[in-house]
Amino acid sequence: MKILIADDDGLSRRLLEKTLEREGYEVIAVDNGRLALQQLSLADGPRLALLDWMMPELSGTGVCLEVRKQHDRPYVHIVLLTSRGSKQDVVAGLEAGADDYLTKPWDPAELTARLRVGQRILQLEDRLVEARETMRFKATHDNLTALFNRGVILDLLARELSRTRREKGCTVVMLGDLDHFKKVNDGYGHVVGDEVLQEIARRLLASVRSYDFVGRYGGEEFLIVLNNCDSSHAIARAEEVRNGIANHQVQTMRGLLPVTMSLGVFASRDWDLRLVEEILVETDLALYKAKADGRNCVRLAEPPVLCSIPLEQIP
């Protein structure tokens, strides 16, 4: 594990370096507070630090205060190591953000024992962060396909539409539904059905750009949001998605299965709709048309043509 030593006293620095190398640490040693802060601000910087209190350019407590402002970095366990040992100093050091405090001259056994405590705390923090990230992923992604779940994909759609309006761009929405998927479940069982859904999810992700969004909208329905996509390209993009599924059978435990998808497509620039619900209704109608036209095809939601004939001329 990496550890930072910051001490302007070369003798203490070398002694610490040797003691900690013997304990198996990868030691980075600097002689002032500014360099210490630089090291602790690096993305892969050390997460254990032994800081002298009084140092040139920036004190140990100054480093603590700056490090604690960096909320986007993993936690750094800081031990202040100094010859200042009054209770007031201890309180000031801890208030500045230090986790522990050792007075010079230190006892090597106590020093290494306290650093092991720091390591245990960091390991605990890592486990907590990992658990939080797992929970966050579970709360935002579909359990089977690992795509965004319905709530999240609809939120992302709303956000994209609002950005598109601001920037006078175009968002393309695709609602895809696997054709005759019930037959897969009924004929081969739900485990095979799940295999198909997982493979389709992979293909959908592979067929869009890294900044587009794909979510599982319902059982075998998928919602795709293409950011900044020109409406003239909407159909071509949807065809790519459809071909990506239809052109290669899906490998399952029961062998290769042919799977196709029908898609309803909506390009926001062609419409004056603001509500996500209204957009979904139109996209769904286009999907319904694709189903009615024989499935395995793409249909674009067409805005109604407004009547330009004056009322008095209408017979």
Binding site: G10, L11, R14, K18, P108
Partner: peptide
Amino acid sequence: LIRVENDHELLSELIGIFKKD
């Protein structure tokens, strides 16, 4: 000697740093 964990070579190095600094 406890602090240098009986490492005489290290002690000699530390004394060298001390003499210089």
